[in-house]
Amino acid sequence: MAKSFEEVLGRLQALGVPGVIASLDPEQASKADPLAPVPARKPGTKGPFGDPHLLVEAKRIPEVLRTLRDDPELRFEMLADVTGVDYAKEAANLGVIYVLLSLAHHTRLVLRADVPKAAPRLPSAVEIHPAANWHEREAGEMLGLVFEGHPDPRNILLSDDWVGFPLRKDYEFPVEYHGISCV
């Protein structure tokens, strides 16, 4: 049973899951052995990248989620949230965040995948976690992420004909929508 972040890392390392770049602090992950544990910070303190999380190769997200869900040591069977982050206007990548919860082991795990802004495509996780359906629709319309293989990729909050992605840092507010002035 993997309780702590380090134990989860160790288990993933033992399973040899491809695509996981593990780190508490992604900048300091060892290139030679990305799954090597990084010393834990003091509880309650936050590093430059927030809470401990796994950096995962975007195209490997579904298989990593599947392993995390099905492995009896891990059992992250609930996907609590999927969201996206635009870190800065000049940043080349968008972050996609997956928050997992293991009800069996009472522990949480955060995954992050980086996708280039120029082509923000990554595979959908709906097949593994049906809960991802609406989360991915929201992240998609807000940040322009394309979740490939999503069964119903319509907008969920914005109108179908909305222009632009509101949570992008370079988003420009509309001037007029269907004859209603926006300013």
Binding site: L157, L158, S159, Y177, H178, I180, C182
Partner: peptide
């Protein structure tokens, strides 16, 4: 709050 989607 009236948003544009609701306004119509």
């Amino acid at each position: 709050t009236v948003n544009f989607k609701m306004a119509e």
